Measured scan of single mutants.
Amino acid sequence: TGIVNVSSSLNVRSSASTSSKVIGSLSGNTKVTIVGEEGAFYKIEYKGSHGYVAKEYI
């Protein structure tokens, strides 16, 4: 489990790349469930599926 550490919002992406499609966003202080790691990204549970967020903001 981690907490989103941004002042505005954090993009949730379809894969572990900054060039991948943005599938949603999370507000600061949102609790997320981390299910894996891939490079500079965490794989998280997101809306019944999975998404990826940059580690530096969790």
Results as ranks from 00 to 15, higher is better:
residue 19 S to P: 06
residue 15 S to R: 12
residue 19 S to Y: 07
residue 6 V to Q: 09
residue 41 F to Y: 11
residue 6 V to S: 12
residue 33 T to M: 10
residue 10 L to M: 07
residue 25 S to R: 13
residue 30 T to E: 14
residue 41 F to G: 00
residue 49 S to H: 10
residue 16 A to S: 08
residue 12 V to Q: 00
residue 35 V to H: 05
residue 8 S to C: 14
residue 34 I to F: 03
residue 14 S to A: 15
residue 20 S to K: 02
residue 29 N to S: 10
residue 11 N to Q: 14
residue 56 E to P: 05
residue 7 S to D: 12
residue 36 G to A: 08
residue 10 L to V: 15
residue 9 S to A: 12
residue 33 T to D: 06
residue 52 Y to R: 00
residue 20 S to A: 14
residue 49 S to I: 13
residue 25 S to W: 13
residue 50 H to F: 15
residue 26 L to F: 04
residue 39 G to I: 03
residue 47 K to Q: 14
residue 47 K to N: 14
residue 47 K to W: 07
residue 18 T to S: 14
residue 7 S to R: 12
residue 41 F to K: 01
residue 47 K to H: 11
residue 8 S to P: 13
residue 2 G to W: 05
residue 31 K to N: 09
residue 24 G to I: 03
residue 34 I to D: 00
residue 32 V to D: 00
residue 1 T to K: 10
residue 40 A to G: 12
residue 46 Y to R: 00
residue 57 Y to I: 04
residue 44 I to C: 01
residue 23 I to H: 02
residue 28 G to I: 11
residue 6 V to I: 14
residue 35 V to G: 02
residue 50 H to C: 08
residue 15 S to E: 15
residue 15 S to K: 11
residue 39 G to H: 06
residue 20 S to C: 05
residue 25 S to D: 07
residue 11 N to L: 15
residue 57 Y to T: 06
residue 52 Y to D: 00
residue 41 F to E: 01
residue 10 L to P: 10
residue 30 T to H: 07
residue 17 S to Q: 08
residue 48 G to D: 09
residue 22 V to K: 06
residue 56 E to V: 10
residue 30 T to L: 07
residue 52 Y to G: 00
residue 35 V to Y: 07
residue 58 I to G: 01
residue 37 E to T: 08
residue 4 V to F: 04
residue 12 V to S: 00
residue 13 R to Q: 14
residue 6 V to M: 09
residue 23 I to W: 03
residue 36 G to H: 05
residue 36 G to R: 04
residue 10 L to I: 15
residue 42 Y to G: 01
residue 32 V to R: 00
residue 8 S to Y: 10
residue 32 V to A: 02
residue 4 V to S: 06
residue 27 S to A: 14
residue 35 V to T: 07
residue 14 S to N: 09
residue 30 T to C: 09
residue 43 K to A: 06
residue 28 G to Q: 13
residue 52 Y to N: 00
residue 54 A to W: 09
residue 4 V to T: 08
residue 50 H to S: 07
residue 25 S to I: 15
residue 56 E to R: 10
residue 54 A to F: 12
residue 40 A to C: 13
residue 43 K to M: 11
residue 26 L to G: 00
residue 12 V to P: 00
residue 32 V to Y: 03
residue 42 Y to N: 02
residue 34 I to Y: 02
residue 18 T to I: 15
residue 8 S to L: 10
residue 22 V to M: 06
residue 17 S to H: 11
residue 16 A to V: 06
residue 52 Y to F: 12
residue 39 G to Y: 05
residue 33 T to S: 09
residue 13 R to V: 09
residue 45 E to W: 09
residue 7 S to P: 11
residue 45 E to I: 13
residue 58 I to Q: 02
residue 37 E to S: 09
residue 35 V to I: 15
residue 12 V to R: 00
residue 58 I to A: 02
residue 44 I to R: 00
residue 23 I to L: 10
residue 7 S to E: 11
residue 12 V to E: 00
residue 6 V to T: 14
residue 8 S to G: 15
residue 26 L to A: 02
residue 29 N to T: 08
residue 51 G to Q: 02
residue 32 V to T: 02
residue 41 F to L: 02
residue 4 V to M: 05
residue 45 E to C: 11
residue 3 I to W: 12
residue 3 I to M: 10
residue 58 I to C: 03
residue 38 E to S: 09
residue 11 N to Y: 12
residue 58 I to E: 02
residue 49 S to K: 11
residue 37 E to H: 08
residue 3 I to V: 13
residue 1 T to R: 10
residue 27 S to D: 12
residue 30 T to Q: 12
residue 56 E to K: 13
residue 50 H to P: 06
residue 55 K to L: 04
residue 2 G to E: 04
residue 10 L to H: 03
residue 11 N to I: 15
residue 19 S to C: 12
residue 28 G to T: 12
residue 27 S to T: 12
residue 31 K to F: 13
residue 22 V to Y: 05
residue 23 I to N: 01
residue 38 E to H: 08
residue 41 F to Q: 02
residue 47 K to S: 09
residue 37 E to K: 06
residue 48 G to R: 05
residue 41 F to C: 04
residue 45 E to H: 08
residue 58 I to T: 03
residue 49 S to Q: 13
residue 52 Y to W: 12
residue 15 S to C: 11
residue 47 K to F: 11
residue 36 G to K: 07
residue 45 E to Y: 09
residue 33 T to C: 11
residue 19 S to T: 13
residue 29 N to C: 13
residue 33 T to E: 07
residue 51 G to M: 02
residue 23 I to F: 03
residue 2 G to Q: 06
residue 46 Y to N: 01
residue 2 G to H: 07
residue 53 V to S: 01
residue 32 V to G: 00
residue 3 I to R: 13
residue 17 S to C: 08
residue 46 Y to Q: 01
residue 17 S to K: 07
residue 23 I to R: 02
residue 1 T to E: 13
residue 5 N to F: 05
residue 27 S to R: 13
residue 51 G to I: 01
residue 38 E to Y: 09
residue 45 E to K: 08
residue 26 L to I: 11
residue 38 E to A: 08
residue 52 Y to V: 01
residue 5 N to L: 09
residue 3 I to D: 04
residue 56 E to Q: 12
residue 47 K to E: 14
residue 16 A to R: 03
residue 12 V to W: 01
residue 11 N to M: 12
residue 8 S to D: 15
residue 29 N to Q: 12
residue 52 Y to E: 00
residue 40 A to M: 12
residue 30 T to F: 07
residue 36 G to P: 00
residue 28 G to Y: 14
residue 49 S to D: 09
residue 13 R to N: 09
